[in-house]
Amino acid sequence: MTDINTTTISSLVAEYPFLTSFFKDNGLDVTGSENLTLVQYFAAFDSDEMEDRALDADNMIVQTEEFIRQMNAFLGKEDDVVKTVTILPGMDKSGNAEEFQELVIEQGEIISIVGPTGSGKSRLLGDIEWVAQNDTPTGRSILINGDVPDRKWRFSSADKLVAQLSQNMNFVMDLSVYEFVELHAESRMVENREEVIHRIIEQANSLAGETFSPETPITSLSGGQSRALMIADTAILSKSPIILIDEIENAGIDRKKALKLLLTQDKIVLMATHDPVLALMGDKRIVIKNGGIHKVIETTDEERTILSTLEEMDRTLLAYRTKLRQGEIITKIQTDWKEKSHA
């Protein structure tokens, strides 16, 4: 790495273009000082000015160096491929050992998590996010690709193992959909930004019942549209290999398509839900009881058959909802799920 103490600002910026916005974000105006080194640049301030602007030259140089190191690591590396996540058993709240040998979750799999409120779903998700090494209250261990994972998953802010889609999809920023996704793309250092942004909005629209435009303010999106946007955004922009979903409400969004989109991006999907339609879409489901993993159930063939009946019921309900919304009189909608379940 270039010696930051002896290199001029112009050469630093030429070598690391991302420093331009870094300096700006840290309130440093380097215009006219391009031929100075950072040390000389700070030396030009008198001590009152430094104090006034809350600057600390030594700290700033250390931070710049650290930022360059992180950005190089971030830009230069291949995407991390997480093929499998393995959960090794710990114990429940009463100290009983969990009754499974090991649970291997593979890329492209959907795992549902079921259990009463307060049973320990969050702790399981927490264990995965923190890549527990028998050092959390449950005593579980998490392996990545079969090995004890790199510590960076814990400590780096750019490499998060888990992206979390919460039930609440509030937006607090006052931006249009386009500006919002652009901001996210910028923070992820995406290259072909415009194309990616359009792809996300297009995907979101294909998931949402009602379409929205790039100019729509994010704060006026409906619940379904917000969820659709966040799922498309997470699938395409987030680097995290594991997606955690806390329930997807069944309104204004095609949930099956949404899960499929996440899987085509090679994610591992973990989903806490009590909705049978979602839960049965999983390949397996983890049953949590008293803080521990009580059982791991593989979705049976019978359950899959029942799932298609449930989906049909789901569609019927949606069709009635649509009629209601459009101000129509509700009349019987022709469906075949009853016949199917009798067959």
Binding site: S21, N26, S157, A158, N168, R188, M230
Partner: peptide, 26 residues
């Protein structure tokens, strides 16, 4: 308060924090 904003907002916010304090653990 990450539970009340979207995943994207959490990521943007964390990256802004990282820009002003790269050495901190977030």
């Amino acid at each position: 308060k990450g539970d009340i904003v979207s995943q994207a907002e959490r990521e943007v916010f964390a990256s802004r924090v990282n820009t002003v304090n790269p050495s901190a653990m977030i």
